[in-house]
Amino acid sequence: MDDSKIIELYFSRDEKAIEHTSDKYGRLCYYVAYNILKSQEDSEECVNDTYIRLWETIPPTVPQSLGAYSAKITRNLSLDKCKEKGAQKRGENDAPPSYEELEACLPSKDGEPVDELILKECINTFLASLDKEKRVIFIQRYFYMCEIKEIAKKNFLTEANVKVTLSRLREKFKKHLERY
């Protein structure tokens, strides 16, 4: 079913909306959750929570892309769960390795929180300045938290090639963040 029709179902408070979302984007959400949590049980729980969050937020939100919107929700819920689990294990850091890689690009790790609009401008300007191939690799690694091996396979590259590209992209990202 077309995204706009599924969104209409949410607006008319028809529970079939969740069924169709699950049918169309369930795999994507599970994939995102599993990449972060590495646990079938936790991932399924996060995907279910995603449906609840979708139900609660549409309306009023009209997502531009239902898939991307669902993936964002799953990602946030999964990272929260990851943090929660880390805290239970007395501060152990369970963040996925890709997240740590990107953290190293921060010019400084403290200071005042940055305005959301500036963050939005910053990330999207950076992505817009990349060609499609590099943008896809960056997002697959740092948003979808894909393994290097998987990115290589999906983009017809070798693992070493992906590693070099990611290292170069992080360098560029760091330079870009310094401008903000």
């Binding site: 531009q64 953290e103 929180p113 948003f143």
Partner: peptide, 28 residues
């Protein structure tokens, strides 16, 4: 910029870029 900002920033990526890079293809 803080660690939290980084996570927030990634959740502000334009949907079109996420769709473009989606590792799970929609049903054919």
């Amino acid at each position: 910029m803080r660690k939290d900002d980084l996570n927030k920033m990634l959740s502000l990526v334009d949907d079109k870029y996420l769709d473009e890079a989606s590792p799970v293809k929609k049903k054919a």
